[in-house]
């Protein structure tokens, strides 16, 4: 099947992909944005006005995915609109709904839960030492993936077309990358617990000699003791506690938990426990 879209058309698709989320709304989420992004492609594919109108209507339906998933789906849709006959058009919508869930999950686990925490913590540690390189490095690393992957996905998705779906079913690519991203992300999160969260107690136990009655001869700093057993054990304890509270409340009261933690920390520092 010959592919009609030129590099210029794909660039246009990329530009419209970038502004797709502006029309996000509670009825169709990105439905309007999807139709707007694909419209120039449809115009090129359908010469008949009635057909064009039908195609545009088809793409205003409910749609939502991750931004990099959007790129793949838009490109595959563009390729499919070209290659399918008039009675196969329903397949395009089922392709969209079939891909948007898995690709959203992949985008989230790859970028939001893995890449952003990694570059965020690298950037933040540089910024804490007062270096402007921190945010600049984060900006570059973030956007190489953010913008680069989006453009690549458009070009690759269009070239592969329906083949993308077949390839994916054969090798289960989305699932495999998701699993790997999940593991990398979790190991990074485990590392972040000890590098980023700092819970330290100035508490001391003084074991004064009972004979002389002197207090404070042998002072044991509790923090030192804890560090010998397990470094950052308090950070781990706080994180696991918050995790369980969040799990109980299904993650919906994060802001409330932050406020409570602030008040608690102020109280605990006041009494010299933290």
């Amino acid at each position: 099947m010959e592919q009609k879209l030129t590099k210029r058309d794909l660039w246009k698709l990329f530009m419209r992909l970038n502004t797709m989320r502006i029309t996000l709304n509670y009825e169709t989420l990105q439905g309007v944005g999807f139709m707007r992004a694909i419209a120039p492609v449809l115009e090129k594919t359908y010469t008949d006005k009635e057909e064009l109108s039908d195609a545009m209507r088809r793409h205003t339906q409910f749609y939502n995915s991750h931004v990099n998933g959007d790129a793949v789906i838009l490109a595959v849709t563009a390729a499919m609109e070209e290659s399918t006959g008039p009675d196969e058009k329903e397949g395009i919508n089922s392709l969209k709904t079939g891909l948007m869930g898995p690709l959203a999950g992949l985008g989230d686990s790859l970028i939001k839960f893995t890449w952003v925490p990694i570059i965020g913590s690298i950037g933040a540690s540089l910024a804490f030492s007062g270096s402007i390189i921190g945010p600049i490095l984060m900006f570059i690393l973030y956007n190489i993936v953010n913008i680069g992957l989006r453009y690549y996905a458009i070009v690759y998705g269009y070239k592969k077309g329906i083949g993308f779906l077949n390839d994916n079913q054969e090798s289960n690519l989305i699932q495999r990358i998701s699993t790997m991203a999940n593991v990398v992300g979790l190991m990074v999160v485990g590392a972040l617990i000890s590098t980023i969260i700092k819970v330290q107690t100035p508490l001391e136990i003084s074991t004064g000699s009972s004979v002389t009655g002197e207090v404070g001869e042998n002072v044991i700093a509790i923090q030192e003791m804890l560090d010998q057993i397990m470094p950052s054990v308090l950070s781990l304890a706080v994180t696991i506690t918050v995790y369980h509270v969040l799990k109980k409340t299904k993650g919906s009261h994060a802001a409330m938990i932050i406020v409570i933690m602030m008040l608690l920390t102020i109280a605990l520092t006041y009494f010299g426990i933290l």
Binding site: F113, P117, G185, L186, V189, L192, I193, I196, I197, K198, V199, S235, V238, T239, V242, Y243, L246, G251, A254, I257, I258, M261, M262, T265, L274
Partner: peptide, 12 residues
């Protein structure tokens, strides 16, 4: 330096 625990717990 303690509140980041919430963000990390959300990731978890």
């Amino acid at each position: 330096s303690i509140i980041p625990a919430v963000g990390i717990a959300l990731l978890m």
